[in-house]
Design a protein around this nucleic acid. Structure first.
Length: 293
DNA sequence: ACGCGGCCCTGCATGC
DNA sequence: TGCATGCAGGGCCGCG
């Protein structure tokens, strides 16, 4: 599911249930997700008030009164549901929308607000980890992350600099979380389409010989901003697993212009191209060969 | 040093 | 209907 807009949607959904509320009980219902849970995982959460819920790239970060931070990653299929504690007793209510049983409800936080927060993750590529806030900057999971695409540090000049010496395609560069942190396959495809840039283009062509940003770089940053902001407004994209924490679907998938639209007409004004798909670095790229150069 | 493919895991669509 | 295959929004690891 989750690229930046989906994770941000989840953050906004969890915030009212978590912020200012205490974790009365935390359940880890199996020994591991992607990694084994830390031995003291639940102990470090229980009794703690969540003072804030932030996001960095595709990570959710809950600040705890103890000085710890709970890092959460949704992997490919992770989702959160927020229920009233009473509803968890009602058959059906507790279930993930796509699950007939509770087999993949792996983590539950029981909050003093009366909310039960359930993490469901069939594929278990997601993970959670508690770390001390003062150790955040040494955290390996976060260490190499590039700038937030919607943050002030990310602009055409910075993107051009970090692509200047790359020998990869533009598609691969944008998927590289060290270059910019939070984009995934969908939004890279969509941003490249909106910027009329080919996914096969060499990343280094975003910079001039003097490492100045080209017009392509400026167009691309504008496109990235636009597509992410629109997707966040739409509650993210629901293809398979993504749900808002209320269980509602996101609806940005209806606004895709190339992703998952192989064979359809290009939606760019005046372009008569057809959306094509090919595999790049082991992942599907969707694009219009006619207007993306 | 860096880029690429393999792989982690389950569920779903497709084709025989 | 049943089984095999391939594919999926992420990202770590090892190889060349």
């Amino acid at each position: 599911m989750p690229e930046l807009p989906e994770v941000e949607t989840v953050r906004r959904g969890l915030q009212p249930a978590m912020e200012g509320s205490k974790i009365i009980k935390a359940e880890a219902r199996r020994a591991d997700l992607r990694f084994p849970f830390q031995k003291d995982f639940t102990a470090r959460l229980e009794g703690q008030t969540v003072t804030g819920l932030g996001r960095r790239a595709k990570y959710l970060m809950a600040d705890l009164a103890s000085g710890d931070v709970l890092l959460m990653h949704l992997g490919m299929s992770g989702s959160f549901r927020v229920l009233k504690e009473d509803d968890t007793q009602t058959p059906g209510q507790f279930h993930h929308p796509r699950s007939e049983d509770r087999a993949h409800d792996h983590v539950v936080f029981h909050m003093s607000s009366g909310a039960a927060i359930i993490f469901n993750d069939p594929r278990r590529f997601g993970y959670m980890k508690v770390i001390a806030r003062k150790a955040l900057e040494d955290e390996p999971l976060l260490k190499g992350l590039g700038p937030e695409p919607l943050g002030n540090a990310f602009d055409a000049a910075m993107l051009a600099r970090s692509c200047a010496n790359k020998k990869t395609s533009l598609k691969a560069a944008l998927l590289d979380q060290r270059v910019v942190a939070g984009l995934g396959n969908i939004y890279v495809c969509e941003a490249l389409f909106r910027a009329h840039l080919s996914p096969r283009r060499l990343a280094a062509t975003l910079a001039t010989k003097k490492n100045e940003p080209t017009d392509h770089a400026k167009r691309l940053v504008t496109a990235i901003h636009a597509v992410l902001n629109q997707a966040i407004k739409a509650g993210g994209s629901s293809l398979r697993d993504h749900r808002q924490t209320s269980g509602e679907l996101g609806y940005f998938q209806h606004s895709f212009q190339v992703y998952d639209r192989e064979g359809e007409k290009c939606q760019s004004g005046g372009c008569s191209g057809i959306v094509k798909r090919f595999t790049q670095n082991g992942r599907s790229t969707f694009w219009c060969p006619k207007c993306q150069k």
